[in-house]
Design a protein around this nucleic acid. Structure first.
Length: 870
RNA sequence: GCGAGAGUGGCGGAAUUGGCAGACGCACCAGACUUAGGAUCUGGCGGGUAAAACCGUGGGGGUUCGAGUCCCCCCUUUCGCACCA
């Protein structure tokens, strides 16, 4: 993902052994994570195929994916949390026998590399690949189980050539087009931004910098072709957070309505200026109220306004004032609060439904980038129009009356503005009077269409995706401009168009590539004549729109990937990342998949089955940032507490979907817990016999051993259930802690051999397996210590046995009138009569019901007894 | 303004279906072992009380034998959207 983090600092990864000699004689059995982790790190590094997914097989697959990082050079805690979640899931699925695909890669094109290049005089490629190496080392040090044989680095030609290939396909299908348009321009980035990259009128990267509008020739991808499908299919994504689906729904912003043409009045025109017979096309969702229109309102940037104001400096000045107001409101981010202003143009437009002349105004509350930038103003039935009409004393004409089941109420004059449209009936609307609103909308749209001055239509907030960037560090757009043949695509066989390396970025004006004549000048593949290359590069969101398909077949040099292989792995079973990508990345990815489906490349309509958005990591109540000085460095945590502790804490401190408030003292507690586990197993390992544990019947176990067994199976259930369901790993880990606490409670019994050795060995084995998804280093060390020869991740996940988890005795709370008065211990299968008799025998219960009459007894098996007394 | 979360000890958080509020951990207190403790172990730890009673899950009402959990109203807060015609 492109990231705002463009930190150029990087900390060397410390995977050396312990930095302090641990020769304290009293601490022989103390867990030294640095020693243990260094040992396993070496082993894992020496086996590159350790976590390799099996090729396309008949085995059940599981594709777990974390959003790939931008290689800023240093991992932050948000990454660690994100990857710890995915890694735990991947390991769990391996242990459950799945063929797991768990890859990682680098979203490595983008602006920070260019900025770093300018600041440090380092070529972007070198800077980027250096960062990749650093971060990969950090990831490996933490021990994430990635299949590096499928690593994807988007800035390398073997990846970006397929961006170019896809672009040619889009072009071929008429879905990539070039158009001169006003584009969002960030003066600080000196480049174009997609609509999705404009946040409240400002650059998403520079939140203090207002985005300007510039006219440029740009390449667009026709995402709007899929607008309806992108919206509709959101209903299929039941494995996505509702929040994300809502955000995408809002972003697509589908609105059903009608276009209606209002002609500028020609009779007035001869006195004035501007084009005779011009038409103002308005968009409305309430065509049923058109007889109540009393003015036409234009956005200040509307082209007709430019015409009208061309020879009218006074109007021009007033319109500019409106533009300034709008801009200012956007700057402070509350355009909703702007005070409505407008100016009368002196011109009139004709309502095609009744021939009325309506004054044409320009208003600061009309947005050029929604609908047509022009509306009909119906003050009686729209809040904003009402407010505006009141202010400028425009006519307010009622044309809809509320319908009610109550005849008294029906036809009563409503309070204005009356905006409800589900229960209304038209009046004063010519031949349409008497119709209900919904019906009127249909009939009036049809009427407009039949008479050639309008039609029913659907408007989207979603706009086509402008992908041109006047930047160096991105995928070159594979297009040529020939004097004779015009726009010519680079032939597929000539791909990739390689991004040249020796480019002076610092002194470039516009696209840096345009200054490189050996890149720009080429021959036209059609006519052989002179041609110029496109010098813009692609938005980096192109890279991340399909990278997860490349993982399935990362070294294919004949196609972006093999469709059969992708079909085996897709859709992604679980995608994990920050909610900040809810719109941009995830909507582009869905679009790309639908396009690939239409190309016949993939069989799935949607790329992602289940999406999980983890919360942010914060500290002292704020997002970690350099300026606040509250950044926690993963390297430092790993060096002090070990990688296991760092990842375990990031899972333990909060449920993963919520924000995590980082506390250094919390991770120390985790370190203690890991030490406890280590000491316990160290002390009790090596004493197992070869006797199979099945020979030990639960009934033959001592009470102490039974207690351990119960706790073990309860823990297995809790951890497994969480992986299957709600992913509250914080409670999984506390469940494992409870198990360990019980083992410590039983230390005396174990020392006295009341707990059979081979049973204990089996418990320890299961404990290690339960820990394996969360703390792989320690788990591997203990696995070996227990004498296990097999691969930990291939060992089956412990099986939960309800009978073994069942308590034999229960402590039942006894209430009197709903207040807790006592507790009784009864056998788990005790009858109601038995429990009630015991409850009545309890001293405290007796004293609180003394002298009163029991009117009702509530008995909830296994839960409680409640006596209602009077 | 609209939409979606959240509000529980000193702190992070548990309580999955209406059934013992505060699991687990941090911090803190006391003790043990120690030359020592930033190691380890044991105990304590919502308020209140000598002990009880009693009070306690943002506030107010309600349903219920019983409400952190369900219903109504309100407050605070986070996030998203926002003159979207």
């Amino acid at each position: 993902m492109p990231s705002q983090d463009n930190s150029e600092t990087a900390t060397a990864v410390n995977h050396a052994g312990p930095d302090h000699a641990n020769n304290d004689r009293s601490n022989d059995d103390r867990y030294d994570p640095q020693r243990v982790e260094a040992k396993w790190f070496e082993r894992w590094q020496s086996d590159p195929q350790l976590y390799a997914a099996e090729p396309h097989t008949t085995k059940k697959k599981f594709y777990v994916l974390e959003m790939l990082p931008y290689p800023s050079g240093v991992l932050h805690m948000g990454h660690v949390r994100n990857y710890s979640i995915g890694d735990a899931l991947a390991r769990y699925m391996w242990m459950n026998g799945y063929n797991v695909l768990h890859p990682m890669g680098w979203d490595s094109f983008g602006l920070p590399a260019e900025n770093a290049a300018i600041q440090n005089n380092t070529p972007p490629r070198q800077w980027t690949l250096g960062n990749v190496a650093k971060m990969k080392a950090q990831m490996n040090r933490i021990g994430f189980a990635y299949d590096w044989s499928r690593e994807v680095t988007t800035c390398l030609p073997d990846y970006y050539r397929w961006n170019q290939w896809f672009f040619l396909k889009f072009y071929e299908k008429g879905l990539a087009y070039r158009k001169k348009s006003k584009v969002n321009w960030c003066p600080k980035c000196a480049t174009v931004l997609a609509n999705e990259q404009v946040v409240e009128g400002c650059c998403w990267r520079h939140e203090d910098t207002l985005v300007e509008q510039r006219e440029l020739e740009q390449w667009f991808l026709r995402i709007t072709k899929y607008a309806d499908e992108l919206l509709r299919d959101l209903d299929k994504l039941s494995g996505w957070p509702e929040k994300v689906r809502t955000m995408q729904r809002n972003w697509i912003g589908r609105s059903e309505g009608a276009l209606v043409d209002f002609k500028l009045d020609y009779a007035e025109n001869h006195k004035g200026f501007g084009p005779a017979g011009s038409t103002i096309s308005i968009f409305t969702t309430r065509i049923d109220t058109i007889f109540g229109a009393t003015s036409v309102q234009l956005a200040p940037q509307h082209p007709i306004v430019d015409d009208l104001a061309a020879n009218n400096p006074d109007l021009r000045a007033k319109v500019d004032q409106l533009i300034a107001e709008q801009r200012k409101a956007r700057e402070v981010g509350d355009i909703g609060e702007i005070e409505k202003h407008g100016v009368f143009t002196g011109r009139y437009a004709i309502n095609p439904f009744n021939g009325e002349k309506l004054p044409v105004w320009v208003a600061n509350y009309i947005l050029m980038d929604y609908g047509t930038g022009a509306i009909m103003s119906v003050p009686a039935h729209d809040d904003r129009d009402y407010e505006f009409a009141k202010k400028y004393k425009l006519e307010i004409r009622l044309v809809v009356l509320p319908l009610s089941n109550d005849p008294e109420e029906t036809m009563a004059e409503p309070a204005l503005p009356f905006t409800a449209h589900d229960e209304g009936m038209l009046i004063n609307s010519g031949q349409f009077s008497g119709l209900e609103c919904a019906d009127a909308i249909q009939k009036m749209s049809a009427f407009a269409e039949k008479n050639g001055f309008g039609k029913a239509t659907v408007t989207y907030r979603l706009k086509d995706w402008g992908i041109s960037r006047q930047r160096y560090w991105g995928t070159p757009i594979p297009m040529l401009y020939c004097e004779k043949d015009g726009i010519v695509p680079v032939p597929e066989k000539d791909l990739p168009v390689i991004l040249p390396e020796a480019v002076d970025i610092a002194h470039a004006l516009g696209s840096p590539l345009s200054g490189l004549s050996e890149f720009v000048n080429t021959t036209c593949p059609k006519c052989g004549g002179q041609a110029r290359r496109e010098t813009d590069t692609m938005d980096t969101f192109v890279d991340s729109s399909w990278y997860f398909y490349r993982y399935t077949d990362a070294h294919n040099d004949r196609a972006p990937f093999d469709s059969k292989i992708a079909q085996y792995w897709f859709p992604i079973d679980q995608y994990i990342g920050g909610v900040e990508h809810a719109i941009l990345h995830l909507i582009y990815s869905r679009f790309w998949t639908k396009f690939m489906r239409d190309l016949g490349l993939v069989a799935n309509d949607e790329p992602i089955e289940r999406l999980f958005t983890q919360g942010m990591v914060i500290k002292d109540g704020a997002k970690m940032s350099k300026s606040l000085g509250n950044v926690v460095s993963p390297d430092e945590m790993v060096a002090r507490y070990g990688a296991d502790a760092a990842r375990l804490y990031s899972l333990f401190a909060a449920p993963p979907d919520r924000d995590l408030d980082w506390q250094d003292s919390g991770i120390a507690g985790i370190q203690r817990f890991l030490g406890k586990v280590y000491r316990f197993v160290t002390k009790n390992a090596g004493s197992a016999t070869n006797a199979p544990v099945e020979t030990l019947l639960a009934t033959s176990l001592s009470p102490q051993a039974r207690q351990i067994q119960r706790k073990l199976h309860q823990t297995i259930k809790r951890v497994s259930d969480d992986f299957q369901g709600r992913w509250h790993f914080n409670t999984c880990i506390s469940a494992i802690m409870e198990l360990v606490n019980v083992l410590y409670d039983m230390e005396d019994a174990i020392a006295q051999n009341v707990v059979p050795r081979q049973f204990l060995a089996e418990v320890q084995r299961d404990l290690v397996l339960l820990l394996a998804p969360f703390a792989p280093y320690l788990a591997h060390e203990l696995w070996e210590m227990l004498g296990e020869k097999g691969i930990l991740l291939k060992a089956p996940w412990p099986k939960y046995d309800a009978a073994l988890a069942k308590e034999e005795e229960l402590e039942i709370p006894v209430q009197v009138n709903g207040k807790l008065r006592g507790r009784v211990i009864v056998p788990a299968d005790a009858t109601e009569d038995f429990v009630i008799e015991r409850a009545l025998g309890d001293e405290k219960v007796q004293s609180s019901i003394a002298g009163k009459q029991i009117v009702k007894t509530i008995f909830v098996p296994g839960k409680l007894v409640n006596f209602v007394v009077r």
